[in-house]
Design a binder for these strands. Structure first.
Lengths: 131, 131
DNA sequence: TGTTTGTTATATTACATGTATAACATAGGA
DNA sequence: TCCTATGTTATACATGTAATATAACAAACA
């Protein structure tokens, strides 16, 4: 896992961490059972505070993507990922809604928007950076 | 325009305002040149502060979706919408990326994700609530 | 025993959000 | 002309979030 932070970004650091770990799992770069750096070591590597990493790990733990134990350290959820719940569907649609409206207003058509979504999805799965 | 706020939501009020006005324009409920309520009257109608409405209007003004003048009051941009700029494309892809990764991790496939995007887009255009 | 681990607590700084007033200049109507 | 409504700007305050800085604790391990 290569994590790159943009400290100038308006996106919170812990959110950037969450996003990149999720992408890592989605792409297969992180496999179920794979270990992640300890809270302290990752914080030190990235030059950020322990609590910021802890917050990101805990969010992912609550979502069922990570296991955080004293014994095992931090590992990618080995026993199968959460799945598409009703709550997740709702959240996904709510966020897509905002993006779709902004796109539509600027004249981006339905097909282009759907194709854009498909393209971004494929970029993640095929492990590419996206640029 | 019917604007409904959820004051309990974690989404900031001014963001909810921006989203719903953008959706209104995208759906055609708000046509170019259409007037919007004055800052003060909308704030009073919604039971929120003047500055919160002002912030939303100003964001939309900066994006080129609204015109805010002393003379005309607040109106939907009459002279054509902004269009899909490079900056907008980047921002769109960055946000789609986060959603696509979360969907992929939960086992939602590429086709389903693209179809979901298409469906949400269509809901907005056809003016439906989305439920 | 000493080190590393996750965990928890406290404090501080900076910023975002939302509200509360207040004032100003300008445009329009009575 | 006077009054009102408009957008605009300024200040202040309360609250919450983000991030950092220390510190301490219990559990696991070499």
């Amino acid at each position: 896992m290569f994590i790159e932070l943009d400290l100038q970004s308006e996106t919170p650091i812990y959110t950037q961490l969450v996003d990149q770990i999720v992408e890592g799992i989605a792409s297969g770069a992180l496999q179920p059972g794979d270990p992640l750096p300890s809270i302290r070591s990752l914080a030190e590597d990235l030059g950020i505070n322990l609590h910021t990493v802890n917050k990101a790990y805990n969010l992912l733990k609550q979502e069922g993507l990570l296991q955080v134990h004293r014994k095992t350290g931090v590992i990618v959820q080995p026993g199968g990922m959460p799945g598409v719940t009703e709550a997740f569907e709702e959240k996904l649609r709510r966020q897509l809604r905002s993006l779709a409206a902004a796109a539509a207003v600027r004249g981006m058509g339905e097909e282009v928007f759907a194709q854009e979504s498909r393209s971004v999805y494929r970029d993640i799965i095929t492990n590419r950076g996206g640029e």
